[in-house]
Design a protein around this nucleic acid. Sequence first.
DNA 1: ACTCAATACTTCGTGATATGATATATATGA
DNA 2: TCATATATATCATATCACGAAGTATTGAGT
Lengths: 106, 106
Amino acid sequence: MDIQLKRGLLDVCVLTAIKDKESYGYQIIKDIKPYTEMSESTLYTILKRLENAQMLTVRTEEYGGRLRKYYHITQSGLKRIEEFKEDWKEILSIYRFVTKEDEDNE
Amino acid sequence: MDIQLKRGLLDVCVLTAIKDKESYGYQIIKDIKPYTEMSESTLYTILKRLENAQMLTVRTEEYGGRLRKYYHITQSGLKRIEEFKEDWKEILSIYRFVTKEDEDNE
DNA sequence: ACTCAATACTTCGTGATATGATATATATGA
DNA sequence: TCATATATATCATATCACGAAGTATTGAGT
């Protein structure tokens, strides 16, 4: 899988994982796994970026002797997801351009 | 439009523009315009990269007193387009994850 | 008691890359 | 003569995904 192709999807993917219910890093990775694999360094980089952009808030809590940081989506975060859906139209337009000439072949 | 989202699409977009018939920079930008806007610096960077990766070959020709560089796609370039179509399945999977919870709302 | 996997988060360096700014040069039409 | 279209090139910058490596705890298996 080409790395570049996933850029721009990943932020939204993480936001979606915490959309309905706050979650924490390790859990997010597991929830996303069926759709796309993400290393820990990638995820925590993204979480930090989204926090700086105020698309989520963070709360630290102890759980079974281990620290967990729970991430909660904000209005901005929800808006970001909606913007993605708008952008998707342009992505689809490019996709159709790339695939349109071989409808007969496959 | 989020820049990151277009990454990975652009290479394939350019390759598609020269897929059936060789073309040159200025023309490629015009052909792609209906689908996505691309600045000249972006395009020539991409063309150089694709040339280094041997996904296209270049031929310089004079046309009306101006130099034109014609770009011709190679087997590798065609293969790159096919690989993109494979990757698209994973992209779609992520897209469905992001959108699946609000089928009722819209 | 020891070991290993799973859980959980952090930081650093690197390579890839899209883009604005800037530059060069010619042809053409107003 | 002057702007616009045509045509390509280069540089510096900012963003970003990821591997590598590290810290620390819990719990199950031997």
